[in-house]
Amino acid sequence: MSTLKTRYTLTQSQKMMIFVLSMSLYGLSNMFTELIPSVQLGPIELSVEYFAFIPLTLCMLFHPLYAAVGAAVGEIIFGELMLGQFGGLGELEKFITFSLAMYTAGRMVSDPKNRRQVGIAAITGVAIHQFFSSVIDIVKVWVGVEELEAVQGLAESVVLIEGVSFLNDVLFSGILFALLPTLYLVPRLYGKIEPLLGMKPRERNMQYATGAWLSPKLVIVGTLLAAVALGAELMSESGWSFGEFELPGAESNEGSLIWISIAAAALVAAAIILILRRSARRRQEAGQLDG
């Protein structure tokens, strides 16, 4: 006769369930948002950017890492590959920024019943993601166009376009398709969807054992710092000097500067992937409840 001890843990399979759930749902929604036409008002596009409420809700209710990564995978598979719009490497950056943002939002919520917390987290999640994607878009033009500043007004227009689309995505999509639905869904689903997956609901103030270094605070502060840095850089580019300083040799060798910045970006991306993967593996090995 043997008696097996009960373990109240998030098992490997439960993580898999969260992943599959998030992937299929967000993937499906992504297919729709890709197909819903947008209203173009000049350079501003009123579009349903994405149904961010799905990963947001799931990240808040379940373990945010698996829900966030699942959603990002779902987007690539359903929204890109299946519709034949897979952008190749370009999707990698989306994958990273999106899962990072959703994960952060999920981590920000300690009590899914607290509406204020849920609301702030939802909009922050969207803002982080949109900010990163705007920055990346700007950097792309930077890399892609030789002697960017030689072209009058190009830098400004790029920043303007990205800035407007950032605001649109946060205020339009963010409120209508992230904030409101999340506020509606999270309290309703809390305590109801978990038993369907055979799990206990997240309890108030549950601590995350692993991956604590990637706290929401860190991500938000990082985002803000990046914003300041970018703003300063742009200002100096466009001639509105903002403190005079120059890297030695920057003047003479534009090309190598670009290479350096690309290398830096690649390093950062690689580091993030590595860390995400390692923490995922650590979690798998530990097989413990960390949510």
Binding site: S2, T3, L4, S13
Partner: peptide, 12 residues
């Protein structure tokens, strides 16, 4: 049962 559904299991 009992590996996938954890719970109190007795018997063989």
């Amino acid at each position: 049962i009992p590996h996938y559904y954890t719970g109190e299991f007795a018997g063989e």
